[in-house]
Design a protein around this nucleic acid. Structure first.
Length: 488
DNA sequence: CCCTGATTAAACATTG
DNA sequence: TCAATGTTTAATCAGG
């Protein structure tokens, strides 16, 4: 919860609030905004007073005060608006707030979104996120298109009155978005027409990243599930009935009962940042070690063999998936992808599941995803704007080739650890072909960056563990990240 | 202004 | 045959 400066008087705050609202909601939306706040209070939701502000985007968390002023979140802890709301009829106000703008009008980004109430507001989630949520809510992590429709309809009544084109969009997304893939017919039960769809584990971190960037998602999603509407008849939800909201453990925490995957991935931005730092440091150290190893042919060959062994053996630690802040690599259609995955992929490899990495879901789910990878190589969807040329062209430069994992915007960030590790390995092989001068530059750069990263990591006392992991002898999980950070 | 992603519409193919 | 499903292309818009 952003803390308001105490030296700011209520009057000035109110004035600034009104100004801000007037600009943000020119069409009588002020009352709607107030109504939203009042509704939140009336529900006496334990989350409403503390959580959703922290669940704003990471970027917003570091935004300037102006952005905070435009956010209504901090008002939930204050009673500044009570006078304004006094005497207003709740029903009429709500009615007005929902009727006054046309159906399909985008939901104001500064108003907490409740899909069950703002049925005329177009959900602030992309179809990818909607599909992702539906699939994640499924116990089996896979759904036929029909059930995806159903989930969306039951959770976002907006679509009940929306033009039917949204279903087309859903199918379009499923087909075109590389994040989703069809489950092998053999594995899918006989569900009639069509296939089951699931999230491609390769891209699940990207979807999570995208979801996390969506304003107000976690809070309202949780709230929605905690107060299921009668319209919700999704059989998966009936089987997997949400539990009442547990008291929030702390700021920015998501109920693990309702959304285990969200509670982990959205639980704290600091953890992800730490993870990113570790990723960078890991890559840099690795890079340096390889450069150094080249100086000694014997040790180089040994290291090569060891690296190869690590990559070939199952259940070996892999490089971490990097969830980049770069929107171009979130979950889009045009992410650069490893074309050679069919050759590289080891069917049934336990390490192929990202659940392994993040400990998502159940054992069955892990198996599902592992097996699902069997069909990944057969799925031609990755052809969309797949930019393997980029990799090759970058390979000429040497530097980009090697520090691909360092750059948050690099396409490497979207691969499975296994695939990425293999690609990195291939890159390193090519790295060995670059000139000594280039390698020296790279090593120097790595040194410099490592020093920078070392400062951060040392601050959190995670350098030893991080570096220790570089030799591939230790696991690298979010859990350890979380614990290390929490300990510090 | 350009690029990219998201959305929407549409046409067409496939499937049960 | 039909409707649902899946694929693909294109146009449009918004945001960076």
């Amino acid at each position: 919860m952003p803390c308001r400066s105490l030296d700011e008087s209520d009057a000035s705050m109110r004035q600034r609030l009104v100004n801000s609202l007037s600009q943000s909601f020119p069409h009588s939306a002020l009352s709607k905004a107030l109504q939203c706040i009042k509704e939140e209070e009336e529900e006496n939701d334990p989350l409403s007073s503390s959580c959703f502000a922290e669940l704003r985007l990471d970027k917003e968390a570091v935004d300037d005060d102006d952005d905070e002023l435009t956010s209504l979140s901090w008002l939930q802890d204050s009673n500044l608006l009570k006078d304004i709301k006094a005497g207003e009829d709740d029903d009429s106000l709500k009615e007005n707030s929902e009727v006054k703008h046309e159906h399909g009008f985008p939901h104001p980004s500064h108003v907490p979104y409740n899909p069950q109430k703002h049925i005329n507001s177009k959900p602030p989630y992309s179809f990818s996120c909607l599909i992702f949520m539906s699939l994640e809510e499924s116990p089996t992590k896979m759904l036929p298109v029909k059930d995806i429709y159903h989930w969306i309809l039951s959770h976002f009544p907006y679509f009940q009155n929306a033009p039917t084109g949204w279903k087309n969009s859903v199918r379009h997304n499923l087909s075109l978005n590389k994040c989703f893939k069809k489950v092998d017919k053999d594995r899918g039960q006989t569900i009639g027409k069509g296939s089951l769809w699931c999230v491609d584990p390769d891209f699940r971190p990207n979807l999570l990243q995208a979801l996390r960037k969506t304003p107000y998602h976690p809070y309202h999603q949780l709230q929605m599930l905690a107060n299921p509407q009668p319209a919700q008849q999704n059989r998966y939800l009936q089987e997997f009935r949400p539990q009442p909201l547990a008291p929030r453990i702390g700021p920015n925490s998501i109920s693990p009962h309702l959304f285990p995957f969200l509670s982990r991935r959205l639980g704290g931005s600091a953890l992800d940042i730490d993870s990113d730092i570790k990723d960078v440091a890991q890559t840099l150290v690795s890079l340096k070690s390889w450069s150094k190893a080249k100086a000694d042919n014997a040790s180089f060959a040994q290291g090569l063999k060891r690296k190869l062994g690590e990559l070939e053996s199952p259940r070996k630690p892999r490089g971490p998936v990097i969830c980049t802040e770069n929107p171009s690599v979130d979950h889009t259609y045009s992410i650069t992808h490893v074309e050679a995955s069919e050759d590289e992929y080891v069917p049934g490899s336990p390490g192929s599941s990202i659940d392994d990495e993040y400990d998502f879901g159940s054992e069955e789910d892990i198996d599902d995803y592992s097996d699902d990878e069997d069909i990944d190589g057969l799925n031609p969807r990755h052809q969309f704007k797949c930019n393997s040329d980029n990799l090759d062209s970058e390979g000429e430069s040497g530097v980009d080739e090697v520090d691909g994992c360092v750059s948050s915007g690099n396409s490497d960030s979207v691969r499975t650890p296994t695939k990425r590790a293999r690609l990195d390995f291939g890159k390193r092989l090519r790295f060995e072909e670059t000139s000594e001068e280039e390698k020296k530059k790279i090593a120097d750069g790595a040194d410099a960056l490592l020093n920078l990263a070392g400062i951060c990591l040392a601050r959190q006392q995670t350098v030893p563990s991080c570096v220790e992991k570089l030799d591939g002898t230790n696991e690298y999980s979010d859990e350890s990240d979380a614990s290390s950070v929490e300990d510090s």
